[in-house]
């Protein structure tokens, strides 16, 4: 039984909230895949914790998107009834977990950005976004600390962990550029002081990455070719599989209360 996708009126502010909500949900979902399967119980706990924070952020952002849109949508409709082409998350966050190094490098790249981004967003003229930012910043600071410590342990641990961490960095690097790009709609929100320009935190993001990877005896790639498309719904093949699992109940049993 198929259920039709919802339609969303993507005004710049709705689209903005959806993009950030999708980032948080998809990354949270990926991390939740580790639950019960992590290398040690402490990491089952930590990765689930981070996943819970991100799913919490997603819920607030979806609810805000629905409120701003002012139609019949809500957090669950936005999460469960949009297909791949309607999802607006970064390509980085939908990349598969891979090994533990790949998961932690993905988290490190994202959290290093999210920490700076949400801290700056606390000054948003939009009170709801400023409040979401204040909560997200606290959580992201912890996520960054957790990921940084692992990057250093893996990079400066054994030959195998070093090689795996370096391979993960080299593999995921091309997905980082998209974090700093904006389209015309978001540019207008930046001019209105509703959101900040993600490009403005890129320098400090790079400093965090350089500091941590140096301590970890790892190298950041020199190539600057970056993959784009997630923000406009042009995803990797991985997202469709994730969504088919995430949305299976709502697609199979339409319109019910759970």
């Amino acid at each position: 039984m198929a259920v039709a996708n919802i339609q969303v009126s993507e005004t710049p502010l709705v689209l903005y909230a959806l993009r950030r909500a999708d980032d948080a949900l998809i990354l949270g979902h990926r991390l939740s895949e580790w639950c019960g399967h992590a290398p040690m119980l402490e990491e089952d706990m930590a990765l689930s914790n981070i996943a819970l924070d991100l799913i919490g952020q997603a819920r607030e952002l979806y609810s805000y998107a629905a409120k701003v849109e002012g139609k019949d949508n809500d957090e669950d409709k936005l999460a469960y009834l949009r297909d791949v082409r309607q999802y607006r998350n970064l390509l980085l966050v939908e990349q598969p977990n891979g090994d533990f190094a790949q998961t932690l490098v993905r988290q490190f790249f994202y959290s290093a950005f999210a920490d700076l981004y949400w801290r700056a967003m606390m000054n948003s003229r939009d009170a709801t976004l400023a409040a979401i930012a204040a909560k997200s910043e606290k959580e992201s600071a912890y996520h960054l600390r957790h990921a940084s410590e692992w990057i250093i342990r893996l990079g400066d641990g054994t030959d195998e962990s070093h090689a795996r961490a370096q391979a993960a960095i080299d593999h995921l690097w091309a997905f980082t550029g998209e974090m700093f790009t904006v389209d015309d709609g978001e540019r207008a929100l930046i001019h209105a002081d509703i959101v900040i320009d993600p490009g403005s935190v890129r320098g400090r993001w790079l400093t965090t990455l350089s500091d941590v990877t140096r301590e970890a005896t790892l190298k950041l790639p020199q190539n600057d070719w970056m993959q784009q498309g997630g923000r406009a719904g042009r995803h990797s093949e991985h997202l469709g599989h994730l969504l088919s699992e995430l949305q299976s109940m709502q697609r199979t049993f339409p319109g019910l209360t759970w």
């Binding site: 939740s32 639950c35 019960g36 399967h37 689930s48 799913i55 919490g56 997603a58 109940m249």
Partner: peptide, 29 residues
């Protein structure tokens, strides 16, 4: 954690997903 973890990625709503993940995390604790 395994039989319940089997449904974390397929929980029917975001609220249920968060509650189940938190529950399985409790079991780990």
């Amino acid at each position: 954690m395994l039989p319940e973890g089997n449904w974390i990625t397929r929980a029917p709503t975001l609220r249920r997903k968060a509650a189940l993940l938190a529950k399985v995390q409790d079991e780990c604790g």
